[in-house]
């Protein structure tokens, strides 16, 4: 029986994007069923303009060299891997509305849904994490 991993992504920034997507892609590669609920600043991870929106925090800017040295995949590469491996991505309807966004502002393949849509998935999760 496959494990199920439920992730809440509620923060923006490059750090948060990597935390969320590394766990999600590793879990999917380990045959887990993975769902991510993006809310508030976490929405920037799946925004079409994520590349310009996701920055390292000023105190972490020196990490950028390390990211290159460690040959870390880009956020869009990780998103593609996540989608290819069946990771379910839900954008929080309420925060999408509050921030004046629409489904078209996000990459293809995501759903916009309410908290219950995510909870329905998360109730049966074996692991849940929040970033």
């Amino acid at each position: 029986m496959a494990k199920r991993v439920a992730i809440i992504a509620s923060n923006g920034g490059l750090e948060a994007a990597y935390k969320v997507l590394n766990i999600a892609t590793a879990a999917a590669a380990t045959d887990a069923e993975v769902g991510i609920f993006f809310t508030f600043e976490g929405l920037s991870i799946i925004h079409k303009q994520s590349e310009t929106m996701l920055k390292l925090r000023p105190e972490n800017e020196h990490f950028s060299e390390g990211f290159k040295r460690a040959n870390v995949p880009t956020v869009s590469e990780l998103l593609e891997i996540a989608q290819d491996s069946g990771v379910k991505m839900i954008a929080c309807q309420m925060t999408v509305d509050v921030m004046g966004l629409s489904k078209d502002d996000f990459i293809d393949g995501i759903e916009v849904g309410g908290a219950v849509a995510f909870l329905d998935f998360a109730y049966d999760a074996d692991v849940s994490v929040t970033f």
């Binding site: 590394n22 892609t25 590793a26 590669a29 870390v72 995949p73 491996s85």
Partner: peptide
């Protein structure tokens, strides 16, 4: 070679 986590696992899968 040269790839960092989670790529080795993703590619192994």
């Amino acid at each position: 070679k040269g790839l960092s986590c989670p790529m080795p696992i993703v590619k192994t899968k």
